[in-house]
């Protein structure tokens, strides 16, 4: 028995995780695909016999649903505005920290990274208070310098931008660390050679650093984009998708249809539309990256 256990050891090592991953990641994909073609709701949960297959009806319905269209529009808005901002800010901060020679620059790493480890619900609650129209700190500070109030969370477009600002604050740290790690991988001799040729700091950054960071920038843009396509907790805690569905994201739409209205089949169809979009966008990005590296 002991010999048998020993021989099977590698399988026993990987079995628990494989079973859990299969049960909660792989099987659910198939289940989601199946129920997206059914009218499963709360009644179906109690009695499987009441579920019937309805073909592509859910997909047709969801793609006609004006609320879903709104959610897609908002999600694209989040991605288009949010992703470039995240890359720009995390890269700029990483460059400044990396060029710094004093020890204090190491402390900045912690300061900018802190929001990334904190709880999203707590953070959303705090920012909700900062954004409060009458008691919030932000409007008070704006008034202090003579600027008018901003309707942070009450005007649909500004509300989207407010959520982006919060998410940006939270996302910069992790990506900054990735950029710093990549920056430290660039050989010092490149800079020394450029200095001998009389290149100034700006030239060194634009001609050496940025091109050398191409892979890191690509990595960050793909992971950030996938993350923003799944934007969920910020609108869930702060606005519940309001005002007038102005901050509703696709992920929140799926959650609300699944767990608030119990339309499991309908929500699953929506989630597959999101999944296909994520895969398509990732593949396009991979292709673009490949073309670019072929060219150089």
């Amino acid at each position: 028995m002991k010999g048998f256990l020993n021989k099977q050891a590698p399988y026993i090592f990987i079995a628990p995780t494989l079973i859990l991953l299969t049960l909660f990641s792989i099987v659910p994909i198939l289940v989601a695909l199946v129920i997206s073609f059914t009218d499963m709701d709360l009644g179906g949960l109690a009695n499987f016999n009441s579920i019937s297959f309805i073909g592509f009806e859910n997909y047709v319905e969801v793609l006609k649903d004006p609320v879903f269209m709104k959610a897609i529009y908002n999600t694209i808005f989040y991605v288009v505005i949010g992703v470039p901002l995240v890359i720009l800010f995390s890269l700029a901060i990483a460059l400044l920290i990396n060029l710094g020679t004093s020890r204090i620059f190491k402390a900045f790493r912690v300061v900018y990274y802190l929001p990334s480890v904190t709880n999203i619900v707590a953070v959303a609650v705090v920012w909700n208070y900062l954004y409060n129209p009458t008691l919030g700190l932000f409007n008070y500070l704006l008034n202090l310098v003579g600027l008018p109030d901003v309707p942070w969370l009450t005007e649909p477009t500004i509300a989207k931008l407010s959520l982006i600002l919060l998410a940006l604050w939270k996302a910069v740290g992790l990506n900054m660390i990735i950029f710093i790690a990549a920056l430290q991988g660039i050989p010092k001799s490149y800079y020394e050679a450029a200095q001998l040729d009389g290149a100034n700091t700006w030239q060194q950054v634009t001609r050496i650093t940025i091109p050398m960071l191409r892979f890191a920038i690509f990595f960050v843009s793909i992971t950030t984009m996938i993350g923003w396509l799944q934007f969920f907790e910020e609108p869930f805690v702060m606005t519940q998708g309001g005002p007038l569905d102005g901050t509703l994201s696709v992920a929140l739409f799926i959650y609300q249809n699944g767990f608030k209205f119990n339309n499991f089949g309908y929500a699953a169809a929506g989630s597959f539309v999101l999944f296909v979009c994520i895969i398509a966008i990732t593949l396009v990005q991979l292709k673009l990256q490949k073309n670019e590296s072929d060219m150089t």
Partner: peptide, 27 residues
Amino acid sequence: GRNALFVLVLATMMIPSQVTMIPVYLI
């Protein structure tokens, strides 16, 4: 089957939680 299983493990990283949310609840 080591390599195939490891690829399977890595593939689960790409599955968004919104897709698994409802089926996992049902399971």
